[in-house]
Design a protein around this nucleic acid. Structure first.
Length: 461
RNA sequence: GGUACUCUGGCAGAACGGUUAUGCGUGGGCCUGCAAAGCCUAUACAAGGGGGUUCGACUCCCUCGGGUACCUCCA
């Protein structure tokens, strides 16, 4: 599989000959997760599900940064502890992402639970004279890492003339960044250098190396993390180990809202909770996968509606497969090729949009055959396996119905059929109406009627 | 100001140095008791602007412009 790598700025082949180790920069738990987080995490979710489906073992680590200034500020505002804040948003994270049908990572390490590892990490940097202590904390000396800037393609001297760099006289160089900050404001931990808390980037270096080793396969996150976060992680980690850190760097494009950037000041932040309530997990996942991960994607009602239309077709496809009863025995050659097409799209730089086109090609073909009553029972079974394989990888779900519910529906359909035969159409339509209220839609084929259960999408009404 | 990414028809989004992408949408028709589903058909003279290379460019090069992100704590 080829993947677009930020570091080499080219497509790199992912080594799948052994376990693939992935580290994804998760969220700083200081607020509700939003659609931008959803996109990044869904992209990685599909990546790992695809690889796992291929039988490749995955170790997938996603961190929670649960110590940072914003969390502390929020705690002060709400007159509570930082832990209360971070615990709350971690709970909300799982509520949202379980709701989005994201598979749980192998582990979700937290910064606050790895202070010992972080301190050991810093000790080694100091030992190597790469970090130094000032009155404010311990700083990483950028000048000791000649390759600094290699990920973000920034030149050190250009950065030094940057306007937004805060002057801190205690630092040797304005670019140096904190690995440990002295502080008396809780939470704090004792360290060989003084009481305080870790800097922002160090937890990811310490935890990724602890869980995945010094040289792991993929490190990822949103594009906005390239600088300084990932740049600094590389500097720290490679200084620490003396060898290459992550092999492939994947950065997921930003989500814009109707062409504008999503920001608190514009008041257009779309929380997952809100979007999930209105559109449900399937539509959101389709939306997040509808563009290439490296490019930005624009959130709009129009696009969501388009995905809703497609999702309805997929639902129909599923129920057509279940209800197929013709004796036809001819799988359309199109369908045979679609699985390969889907996989090829994924292999080629994880082109989920093309993979989705393949998926919907299958959907259309099934629905077309079914409408003509040409969908063979035996073929439907084979196609269903492939359909469900794709659903699984894409993380799309069709809820199961109980036998009781099915029986009830079948009975109602039979009554309607009776009425239709007697040309009592008004009464027959009443039954159809009743079923519609239960989100059951009827599809009349020649000589028989099948039903489908529609996902309840609030935004549709 | 700098760096990176990006700019294809109403929208989304591919491939390819020379062929209709495809999907969604929209118009018309068929099917249906009516719908839905499905089918047929029509619809866009697409390539941010301008140069160049070439027999020929959406595809390569240059240039100008727009968008997004980052330039110290944002996925």
């Amino acid at each position: 599989m080829k993947l677009q790598d930020t570091l080499s700025n080219s497509e790199q082949e992912l080594d799948v000959s052994k376990k693939v180790r992935i580290y994804l920069c998760g969220i700083t738990v200081n607020d509700e997760s939003h659609i931008g987080h959803a996109r990044t995490i869904i992209v990685f979710d599909v990546l790992r599900k695809y690889l796992e489906e291929k039988g490749i073992e995955i170790e997938f680590i996603q961190n929670f940064t649960d110590v940072d200034d914003k969390i502390i500020n929020r705690a002060q505002t709400e007159n509570t502890t930082a832990e209360t804040i971070s615990t709350r948003y971690i709970e909300n994270y799982f509520r949202d992402f379980d709701g989005l049908n994201v598979k749980r990572a192998t582990d979700y390490p937290k910064a606050t639970e790895h202070i010992g590892d972080i301190i050991k990490f810093i000790e080694k940097l100091i030992e190597k004279q790469i970090a130094y202590t000032t009155k404010n904390g311990v700083y990483f000396s950028v000048s000791k890492f000649p390759e600094y800037g290699k990920l973000s393609k920034k030149k050190i001297d250009e950065l030094q003339s940057g306007a937004r760099i805060e002057i801190d006289e205690a630092k040797k160089d304005p670019l140096d960044f904190a690995v440990w900050k002295f502080s008396d404001v809780e939470p704090t931990w004792d360290s060989p250098w003084g009481k305080g808390r870790p800097g922002w980037h160090i937890e990811c270096s310490a935890m990724s190396i602890k869980y995945l080793g010094e040289n792991f396969d993929i490190h990822g996150g949103g594009r906005d993390l390239i600088f300084p976060h990932h740049e600094n992680e590389i500097a720290q980690s490679e200084s620490f180990t003396g060898s290459q850190f992550a092999k492939i760097w994947i950065h997921v494009g930003m989500v814009t809202i109707n062409g504008e950037k999503m920001s608190k000041s514009l008041g257009n932040v779309k929380s997952i909770k809100h979007v999930l309530e209105n559109w449900g997990p399937n539509i959101i996942r389709l939306f997040c996968l509808s563009g290439h991960y490296s490019k930005p994607i624009d959130y709009s009602e129009e696009l969501l509606k388009e995905n809703l239309t497609k999702w309805r077709q997929a639902e129909i496809c599923y129920y057509e497969l279940i209800h197929a009863n013709s004796e036809n025995r001819k799988i359309s050659p199109t369908i045979e090729k679609i699985g390969t097409e889907f996989d090829n799209a994924m292999e080629d730089n994880f082109n989920t949009h093309l993979a989705l086109s393949a998926f919907f090609k299958l959907v259309k073909e099934v629905n077309r055959l079914a409408a003509d009553e040409k969908l063979g029972k035996a073929d439907a079974l084979i196609i269903k396996t492939e359909f469900e394989r794709m659903l699984e990888i894409l993380g799309l779900t069709i809820p199961e119905m109980t036998e009781d519910e099915k029986q009830k529906i079948d009975n109602l359909i039979a009554s309607r059929e009776q009425l239709r035969n007697e040309k009592q159409f008004e009464e027959a339509d009443k039954i159809r109406g009743r079923l519609n209220e239960m989100n059951i839609e009827l599809i009349d084929h020649k000589g028989r009627t099948i039903w489908m259960k529609k996902e309840n999408i609030k935004a549709e009404n």
